[in-house]
Design a protein around this nucleic acid. Structure first.
Lengths: 118, 118
DNA sequence: GGCATTACATCATATTATGATGTATATTGC
DNA sequence: GCAATATACATCATAATATGATGTAATGCC
């Protein structure tokens, strides 16, 4: 059992999990689900804590959409699913990366300056 | 009738509308709904295009939660609701601002560097 | 043996932005 | 004067998606 709470509010994290998974697999090659949870945690400085109830359905959705592939491996009797990013997944990642960095920049400007209408 | 499409994908915008409204009213004092839509558009460089179907229910929710107050005014026969941020709203904005700027920074780091696990 | 960790999974629920739709007044161009 | 557009409010069904709760089972450690 895993019980953790994200530092960022639930709403702020919406729409960001898929790109994070794509980026993770793009950088690291093969990874399995449980490994991703821990890596995202480390990677974000303990600030993004993905829950299993979020991760597994998202991995299935990305696979269904052809952005990921996976292979099963047996460690003793236990099965592990190693996921990899597909060609289509890499293309999608590039698109989303541009959007995210631009969005982040927009938000940064919005909340850092004082915008007065005249 | 207003028909516009946001530059950013739907998911990415989730959870950001409330803080934007709070920031807007914090900077500008009194504003009415329709004015907010146009200001957010200008303010974000045409990148965040809030829909009426999103804005009005959100204004009601923020008011219900005590973060906004409003006064009705008549421009001829037409009613306008001028919203202002409350003390509680300002407190909430400060909290959310810190969270958003930190989140933005985390995302920027995540998507700009290559993170390899060893 | 007992406990924590690893590793997968599903499902009901909550949140929230959107598109569609509706109503009505005011303004601007011709 | 009239038509088109802009102003200004609103509601509702729908879609997307992260979470908490819950479940199963193997492995590693003391």
């Amino acid at each position: 059992m895993m019980y953790i709470a994200s530092m960022y509010s639930r709403e702020l994290l919406k729409g960001i999990l898929k790109p994070i998974i794509l980026k993770l697999l793009s950088d690291n090659g093969r990874m399995h689900g449980y490994e991703m949870v821990r890596t995202i945690k480390d990677w974000s400085g303990e600030k993004i804590l993905v829950k299993e109830g979020s991760l597994y359905p998202t991995l299935h959705a990305l696979t269904r959409d052809g952005l990921l592939t996976y292979e099963e491996e047996f460690i003793g009797k236990r099965v592990r699913k190693y996921y990899s990013i597909s060609k289509a997944g890499k293309t999608r990642l590039e698109e989303r990366k541009i959007e995210i960095l631009d969005f982040v920049d927009t938000l940064s400007n919005m909340f850092n300056s004082k915008h007065l209408t005249t």
